[in-house]
Design a binder for these strands. Structure first.
Lengths: 189, 189
DNA sequence: TCCCTTTAAGATACGAGCGTATCTAATTAA
DNA sequence: TTAATTAGATACGCTCGTATCTTAAAGGGA
């Protein structure tokens, strides 16, 4: 009998594929290390050697399956349009990933996180750079005052994030519009 | 041998006291239903009959030990002073409760919550009423424009909450001041 | 090419805690 | 005194994270 024992990258890929399949089949909170290992035809120890926890495994699987490329910075020609585009894209990506997975990951990370950052980079992070760029372009067009402080620049994403936690669902389009029109635009013009 | 078997309220009180003691002794994430039951001299089943999950047990224990009275609405004579007082009080209460417990509870609730609301009432909630009252008084003094929309009124607590999640620590005093001075006050005056 | 050393895959077992179900007997209420 | 509750004990299967052991796979030197 050909005893094939996978190693290195090939094994790792198989493990991540198994994790992804398990995520699709069972959802985040029914996903067990046990089940992933079994699906990959190996044992938990092999999993733990690579990823010390379930959220880290899942994030690795997501990274493999869905590169989650950061995307270009919207350039619609208006500050308002750019901001709406950014927030709507965030909402869309969260929805694509699946809310159950999102909240499962957030919950695990908030509970135990040594590194909240990983998750943040993967699913919550919109770089302050994006906001800065958009604001700079707007200032050049005369749409926004120059020198908007960092804390003000990130208000839209901060309030977005708050909505996400507060209501356990991504902001409605109405909420997004309110954040931009009632809060952000008055602050930067 | 006097077989004393506690019932009803007396038993419930003993269970909550045991949970509280266990919380102080081990902290939130080392607190197990097992240990609470043992400390109370009973079994897990008795616990689960009353509280279906660890966070709910802990919140009940907190409610018993620390009534978490909502507190009066600050009235310092200025809008800025009132807002600072509200946010600083939030920070202080979170610190008193213990960050490890706070983040443990939040994590559990975000993960699985059927009812995020319980937690919210207990530790995160600052009523929109508080903000409305403060703003009304400020408007009467001529410090704020009247008719500030709800979404604007809650900006300080929303951003506070965002900081709490984003950095996994309550906002610094500097952050609180920035939220008030750079964002909130410009929006309402 | 063969051998030998190093690495790490995969199997197995551990104690712990989970949440649930079942049974008994103590307590309470009628 | 009897009937209804429900406390407390015990045991179930499951998953966790870790530790240990074996042996397959990869690499290096002659």
């Amino acid at each position: 009998m050909a005893q094939t024992r996978r190693r290195g990258p090939a094994l790792e890929a198989a493990l991540l594929d198994a994790a992804w399949a398990e995520l699709e089949a069972s959802g985040y909170d029914r996903l067990t290390m046990e089940a992933v290992a079994e699906r990959a035809g190996t044992s938990r120890a092999v999993l733990y050697r690579r990823w010390p926890s379930r959220p880290e495994l899942v994030i690795a699987a997501m990274r493999r399956h869905r590169p989650m490329l950061s995307g270009e910075i919207p350039d619609t020609g208006s500050l308002r349009g750019d901001m709406l585009a950014v927030l709507r894209r965030m909402s869309q990506r969260l929805a694509e990933t699946g809310l159950e997975t999102i909240y499962g990951l957030i919950g695990d990370y908030v509970s135990s996180a040594e590194s909240f950052d990983d998750l943040n980079d993967q699913v919550l992070h919109i770089s302050a750079d994006v906001m800065t760029t958009i604001l700079k372009r707007a200032a050049d067009r005369g749409e926004a005052r120059p020198g908007v402080p960092q804390r003000v620049a990130t208000v839209p994403t901060d309030l977005f994030r708050n909505e996400l936690f507060r209501h356990r669902t991504p902001p409605s389009d109405q909420a997004i519009v309110e954040i931009i029109d009632e809060i952000f635009l008055p602050l930067v013009t």
